[in-house]
Design a binder for these strands. Sequence first.
DNA 1: AATGAATGAGAGTTCATTCAT
DNA 2: TATGAATGAACTCTCATTCAT
Lengths: 223, 223, 223, 223
Amino acid sequence: MQAMSEMNAVSRISQSPQGPGRLGAGENPAKRDQILDGAKKVFAANGFDGASMNDITKAAGVSKGTIYVYFNNKEELFAGLIHRERERIFDAVGSILVDTKPLQDVLFDFGMMFGRHMSNADTVRSLRMVLGVIDDMPEVANMFLNCGPTKGAHQLKDYLATRVDKGELVLEDPLLAARQFADLCTAGLFKPCLFNERVQPDDAEIEKTVRSAIRVFMKAYAA
Amino acid sequence: MQAMSEMNAVSRISQSPQGPGRLGAGENPAKRDQILDGAKKVFAANGFDGASMNDITKAAGVSKGTIYVYFNNKEELFAGLIHRERERIFDAVGSILVDTKPLQDVLFDFGMMFGRHMSNADTVRSLRMVLGVIDDMPEVANMFLNCGPTKGAHQLKDYLATRVDKGELVLEDPLLAARQFADLCTAGLFKPCLFNERVQPDDAEIEKTVRSAIRVFMKAYAA
Amino acid sequence: MQAMSEMNAVSRISQSPQGPGRLGAGENPAKRDQILDGAKKVFAANGFDGASMNDITKAAGVSKGTIYVYFNNKEELFAGLIHRERERIFDAVGSILVDTKPLQDVLFDFGMMFGRHMSNADTVRSLRMVLGVIDDMPEVANMFLNCGPTKGAHQLKDYLATRVDKGELVLEDPLLAARQFADLCTAGLFKPCLFNERVQPDDAEIEKTVRSAIRVFMKAYAA
Amino acid sequence: MQAMSEMNAVSRISQSPQGPGRLGAGENPAKRDQILDGAKKVFAANGFDGASMNDITKAAGVSKGTIYVYFNNKEELFAGLIHRERERIFDAVGSILVDTKPLQDVLFDFGMMFGRHMSNADTVRSLRMVLGVIDDMPEVANMFLNCGPTKGAHQLKDYLATRVDKGELVLEDPLLAARQFADLCTAGLFKPCLFNERVQPDDAEIEKTVRSAIRVFMKAYAA
DNA sequence: AATGAATGAGAGTTCATTCAT
DNA sequence: TATGAATGAACTCTCATTCAT
């Protein structure tokens, strides 16, 4: 009868009155993904306001009614999309190496990952999309942002702190240093991409930027 | 004299047959600013699509018809707003000191200006507003962006090149270095503000960030 | 203070409180005609609804306020225009010869006048204009129509009746005969022009049509 | 099958993926007719510009959105209406008898049909409606006019030519003669009706007019 | 469970009319 | 007196959402 926010769809499965093998309304994950795939295309191309539910309907290949079974309204559909994208990115970021390799190798790996991520055309489009609704749907926006641009620096901060403890680095403010390194890795990449002043850079340019970032960072903070 | 939507300023002036002392339709700068002030609030709060002409009408305290005397449509109203904001910011950026003072003082002045600007709540709102229409109104967006975030690094690049010539700095890529310094000056400020993760920083925090940026930059590039 | 319908403007002149030589508001016939001239162009080109008071303002070279001094509203402006046009056409129709010339000459003169009139591009445009408002402003429409297409046949009817009395014609229903002759004179001219299927005919074609009409009419009704 | 606005019928049909028994959007002929019925009332009463989509909405008993599913815009709605009316009238005109009956009987049948048609209140309203948009939508207007007032005379012309060949009539210009006869049949009917000077005539009056037309015509052109 | 035809509030825009200058 | 900047109701059209099938 009533649809529910995707937030708690999973927990509801067990309450479904249908027999085994029969999926309840709004509980088919494949259909859900099909909807989100369509929504992603349309939202990315047109922004939140510019995207019409009709377009999403066509892009997803499902009927209007079906979308409203899975998501109560456009806003929750968008939230569901962001939530899914977040998970994907989170996995990527989560599996980063902050471990036993030499410091400069770790910085390089992190830098390349971060540089690639923040200048990726897809990511940039998503960021713009989210920035467009940041005032109207702050929790949705934060859900997305806390794992991407922000998460990176925070994870790095913890890593840098351990290196300070080990005497490899000398710095007073690990969070600031982490942010500095992160921003150095996207110097000339992130802002121009966000502002549409340039296209997505290739790996060579990212590497050049990251290597320069490491050089600057190490001259400033190496023990 | 008054600023005008560059789209139709010429044609509008030429068809105004009235003598001096009487303002033609759409030529009262005070009313024009009144409209833009209202539009700024509503656009900043809701984005381009989210802002309704009705809301702008109320916020500006003028009737709908009046807005359409001054601006042909919503898009030109937005363009007019961006144009005005650009001029304000351009003046600020244009008067930067890149001169005969000691290098570190110049870097400090530039850093403070850039840090303040890029973390200013007003600027950030404008940036988000513009990022929301970057695909639909690229020329309008560029008009705005080319003077703010971008301009800074390019001006700094030229200055750094002269310091390299004078033997004060050693660096191969002045543009990259300029971008690095600019990004160091907004580390922990710009992105968090843009993403609404923090409020506008006070001068003390900006200064702390800029001083750290100078330290890092000089360790990396001082002769 | 208040403007009045042009219907009674004349009678009001004597009530004007101004001294001699000074025209009261809405009482300058030259300005009135200037307005109507502009209105005629715009109404003819765009129809009643399609004509905007702004366009009329420009075409007439007067201000919006002035028009509203002379005419209370758009409808009365249109009525004023129709009223003036009516007078012009009425004069033309009124001076027609229904007199002492031979019957066939009179029929020819009448036929040419009627044929020219009913196929004239200007008249046709006016007719269409009036047909467009015939339901909303019936009195206005009738004011115009009663002097043009209708008047002709009625005047002719009286003339034909005298010829019957003189024994030149044999017919029972002079009004029907008059209408028949009038319609014969515009066969292939009026309806195609009204329906935009053909352009205004030249005099040669009108004459050919009128001569054929006379031939048919005389064979049918000559004594 | 159902009639359709010829503008988009093809594209609409091709994108309807549903199986038989389910009607696609804008493909329910009953609803389409319901909309056109409402539109007819409002357009006939107010003209094209005077008719508001809101009024049509109410008159048709459907929502605004529904109208826009069936017709892309007001103009196409009007075109759809004219198209439907044309078909109705065309059938009536098409089935006219131009055959093996005696000449005077054929003329009588034709005359009655034409006289009835051109003085019919419905037809007259439609004509006025169409005359109101003849400058803005010429193709739509012609679509309608070419089958009604015009078609009649042209069909008659061909018939008269055969009677000339058979020696029953003597005339040089069959098209002119056809137009003359047609106009004789509506003398005192068409123009007064079009100009709202009289109400729709009854059959007795039409017959009287047609019989007189035949008498005049035969005296003029009978062999 | 899934569909998509139908809804109607609200969008951007126009324009007849008013009134301070 | 004449002006035209300002008004706001009404316009055409869109689209998130609902619900009968």
